[in-house]
Amino acid sequence: MTHASATTLAPDLALLERLAHDAVVALPEPWRAAATHVQLRIEDFAPRDILDAMGIADPFELTGLYEGIPLTEKSVMDQPLGPDMIWLFRRPILDEWLDRGDVSLGEMVTHVLVHELAHHFGWSDEQIAAIDPWWE
C-alpha cells in the first residue's frame, strides 16, 4: 500500500484562502486597498440556504458569491447589516479548474475572486477584463 504524497492531495481550504489573499494583494490600486475591507470566507460548498435562495440545485454550479451592498449603491444613510463578504467555494472551484485544464489554480481563484469583486465595486466588463485578462 502506498501513501498519498502532498502532491496528490486535493488543495485544501487554507490553500484557497492563501491564493485569494494573494489575488487581493496583486490587485492594482485603488482596488487593492478597498478590497482588503471585504471579508473572505472559504468553504467547500455554498450553504444549502444560499443555494435554495438562489434557486440552485447543484452545489457545484456556484464557485463564488458576493454578499453586501455594492459600493455604487451604498449610502451614508445605510445602516450596515454586516461586513461585505466574498464567499469562495472550494469544490466547485476545483472542478472548474480541472475541467478547464489550461490555467493554474491561482489563476482560477483570482478569476472567481475578481468576478465577485466586480459585484462589490460595480465594475463594467471592460474593467473586469483589464484586471482579469481571461474574463469570458
Rank of each mutant, 00 (worst) to 15 (best):
E67R: 15
F60V: 06
A20M: 03
K74M: 14
G106S: 13
T8E: 10
L117W: 07
L113I: 00
L19P: 00
E96Q: 15
M77F: 14
A26Q: 13
G55V: 04
E136K: 12
F45N: 02
E116A: 00
G64L: 01
P30H: 09
R41F: 00
H119P: 06
H111Y: 11
E136H: 13
K74N: 09
Q39L: 08
W31F: 11
D78L: 10
L62M: 13
L19D: 02
I93G: 00
A34I: 07
L62A: 02
P47D: 14
L98C: 01
H37G: 13
Q39C: 06
D44Y: 01
L40M: 05
L98E: 03
T63K: 05
Q127I: 03
H3I: 08
A129C: 09
L13V: 07
I50K: 10
V76P: 10
G122L: 10
L105P: 00
A129I: 08
L27G: 02
S5K: 08
A6W: 07
G55D: 01
A46E: 00
G101S: 10
L9Y: 05
A53D: 05
D22H: 08
Q127M: 12
H37P: 07
Q79C: 08
I86M: 08
V24D: 00
V24E: 00
E126M: 08
E136I: 09
I42N: 00
L81T: 12
M77C: 05
P80V: 05
A35W: 02
L117G: 02
A10G: 04
F121M: 03
D52Y: 01
L9A: 10
D125H: 15
V114L: 05
H37C: 07
I86F: 04
D78I: 05
L71N: 02
H111F: 10
S104R: 12
P70A: 04
P30W: 06
G122W: 10
M85T: 15
F45I: 04
V103M: 14
S104P: 04
R90M: 00
L9K: 12
E17W: 02
V76N: 14
W31T: 04
T2L: 06
M1L: 07
T36M: 11
V24A: 01
R91G: 01
D49H: 15
M77H: 15
T2E: 03
V103I: 14
T7Q: 11
V38F: 05
T110M: 03
P30S: 07
Q79R: 15
A118M: 12
L88P: 00
P133G: 11
W135R: 12
D132F: 00
D58F: 13
E43W: 01
H37N: 12
A130Q: 14
E67C: 15
I93V: 10
M1T: 11
H21D: 06
I69G: 01
H115F: 07
S5I: 09
L71A: 10
L81E: 12
W87G: 02
E136T: 10
P80I: 05
H115E: 14
D84F: 01
W87K: 08
L117F: 10
L15C: 03
L19H: 01
P28N: 06
A34Y: 04
R48L: 14
L65V: 12
V114Q: 04
H120F: 13
M54N: 08
G64Q: 02
W135E: 10
K74Q: 15
L71I: 04
H120S: 03
G64F: 01
R18Q: 09
D12G: 13
W134T: 09
G101K: 09
A118E: 11
T63A: 15
E29A: 14
A130L: 13
